[in-house]
Design a protein around this nucleic acid. Structure first.
Length: 536
RNA sequence: GUUCACAUAGCUCAAUUGGAUAGAGCACUUCCCUCCGAAGGAAGAGGUUGCAAGUUCGAUUCUUGUUGUGAACACCA
């Protein structure tokens, strides 16, 4: 790695200034005239050395020796810019081809062990747009972390116990009985979605009136199973495959909840008052205390949720990530507080909050689905714009923007639509490559030496560090931005350069170059769950 | 009222987490197909980064205040 060489040489130069153990930042300047790489180390040292940054930079320059660097410049206010030989960019073509689907992967996360919990929608209905965004984020993050060497489990927490499931059972039962001519009301907090009616209809079709006297538990379990199966199916279509589905019911039955609460009391973070047991969350970073055991003896939702997080820790995960809607933000302090109350470090839990999504068509927000009258579902979105566009669009924005999902844009087949733009770049590489059967390996690249090619090569070279950065910052949209830039630099090159020439050797070099571009685009898109077509 | 987010070009969003002249796409004004896919490319114009202080060599980024927007504030989950 060329960066390593420069950094090492810098360290040597710094030793002569009698400073050591400095963290050296080597960045790629935005402007070409500021070199291929640059460091701000002189600016950082100004204070400790009590000297003018420019003086320091010049001293470093004098003592700097590295064969790969052709020119070294000092620029005000104290940057040191390095211009290097371009060989490393050309050599990288063969590295990319050799590594193939692994190009861009790195080992920065080795030994780190993450559990990412996301979507986790109650099995009382179908997935909506918020789940779609959270799902895209969670899954892309998992892919990026894995590509960076982390050990990752993708997990879905199924709330298959509690009041909401009872209401689901009652709702299905009511719809079914009504079909039998026994008018039955859906409970106050019941579910009215068309999918509930559908389940009842199917029951009637298959069993006629023979289920009339079934218990509520029957409907609860039946509804949970059917809806969970539907959710799993959509998620699979959406290219999310969870490693683990955790059941609330199971967690509750295998956890010792009274003991857990006792521990909190022993630690001084829980107390009894008004016949209820409270979590002293006000001293744990929350704005007020919250009830754990109601005065009728039953648990609030918080207790199984805490038990679930403890369960994850006990399963050996050292880092927990929860992806939640911003409407759950109040929950974060309670959950972290309860981890502390049980003697765990709350920092092992990192909660990612995602802002709401607005669906927009022709500049106007769509609030309701025309078909169902309810909020638009993930399935409908996929049907409308396709899986690639859905995954790409959600991965385009950082989580903290209240994003607009532009339906018309996602469907457009022009450069206005980033999914098409990137896919088109990929298809262009395929078209040329597919017309050649035998592409020879190149040892030394001799013909590629124009600025536009170097721009593309630099983007290709950047990819592994982009992946690493996206993993560390947990920001999948950095990948999306990257692949767009790469596509853009390639489109520009494509419009100026002919890849197939009269010179056989030159053509072979270009074809290897194209392979490298193709591989990199594909690998990047894979990280956000997009599969580009070879032909469009 | 309290808490948590967010505020960047007319619109939708970036900005290597404190770096050099804040960047893309759309829309607007021009231009480029005899040629591997024009589903593409080039040029122009567009900004007091909501506002005001502070921290320092340097702030869109960090602190505080302020305005606006969204969300949450049950012995519901």
């Amino acid at each position: 790695m060329i960066e390593e060489s420069i950094k090492k040489s810098l360290e040597t130069a710094l030793n002569t200034l009698e400073v050591s153990n400095q963290v050296i930042e080597l960045t790629k300047p935005q402007k070409k005239e500021n070199g291929d790489f640059a460091t701000n180390i002189a600016l950082k040292l100004a204070k400790t050395l009590q000297d003018n940054p420019l003086n320091i930079a010049n001293k470093i320059k004098e003592n700097f020796k590295c064969d790969l660097v052709t020119t070294i410049e000092v620029a005000p206010p104290g940057f040191i810019n390095f211009f290097v030989k371009k060989d490393y960019l050309l050599d990288n073509i063969n590295t990319i081809i050799k590594e193939g689907t692994k190009y861009g992967s790195n080992t920065s996360g080795k030994g780190l062990n993450y559990n990412i919990e996301f979507v986790s929608a109650n099995p009382t209905g179908i997935l909506h747009l918020g789940n779609a965004r959270g799902g895209a984020y969670g899954d892309s993050l998992a892919r990026i972390l894995r590509f960076s060497g982390y050990d990752v489990t993708e997990e879905y927490y199924v709330n298959d116990a509690g009041v909401q499931i009872t209401n689901l059972g009652l709702s299905i039962q009511a719809r079914y009985l009504t079909l039998l001519g026994i008018p039955t009301e859906i409970p106050e907090n019941g579910y009215h979605g068309p999918e509930i009616t559908e389940i009842a209809k199917d029951l009637y079709q298959e069993h006629k009136d023979t289920l009339k006297d079934q218990t509520l538990d029957y409907y609860k379990e039946l509804g949970t199973n059917i809806l969970l199966a539907k959710i799993k199916k959509v998620l699979q279509d959406y290219r999310i495959n969870f490693d683990v589905y955790s059941s609330e019911k199971e967690i509750v039955s295998k956890s010792n909840l009274p003991k857990m609460i006792k521990t909190m009391q022993d630690n001084g973070y829980a107390y009894e008052s008004d016949g209820a047991t409270w979590l002293k969350s006000s001293v744990l970073g929350d704005d007020k205390d919250h009830v754990l055991i109601k005065n009728d003896g039953s648990y609030t939702y918080l207790v199984p949720d805490i038990a679930y997080h403890i369960d994850k820790i006990k399963r050996g995960y050292t880092n927990l990530i929860d992806v939640l809607g911003t409407d759950h933000h109040g929950y974060v302090a309670r959950l972290k507080g309860s981890l502390k109350a049980l003697g765990y470090n709350p920092d092992i839990l990192d909660v990612k909050l995602l802002q709401l999504v607005r669906l927009v068509k022709d500049g106007i927000e769509i609030k309701m689905s025309k078909r169902t009258g309810n909020s638009v579902s993930l399935q409908e979105l996929i049907d409308e714009v396709g899986i690639n566009a859905a995954r790409y669009f959600f991965s385009m924005r950082s989580l903290d923007t209240q994003m607009d999902f532009d339906l018309e844009l996602a469907k457009k087949t022009s450069n206005e639509n980033p999914v098409y733009y990137v896919s088109y770049a990929y298809a262009r590489t395929c078209t040329i490559l597919n017309s050649y059967k035998n592409i020879k390996n190149i040892n030394k690249y001799l013909y590629i030496n124009d600025i536009l090619s170097y721009n593309v090569l630099e983007k290709l070279y950047e990819f592994p560090s982009v992946v690493k950065n996206a993993a560390e910052k947990k920001l999948p949209h950095l990948i999306t931005n990257y692949v767009y830039d790469l596509a853009s630099s390639f489109h520009l090159l494509y419009s100026k350069k002919r890849f197939i020439t009269d010179n056989e050797d030159e053509t072979m070099e270009n074809l290897n170059f194209l392979s490298a571009i193709k591989i990199t685009i594909k690998n990047a898109l894979d990280l956000i769950g997009v599969i580009p077509p070879e032909k469009m």
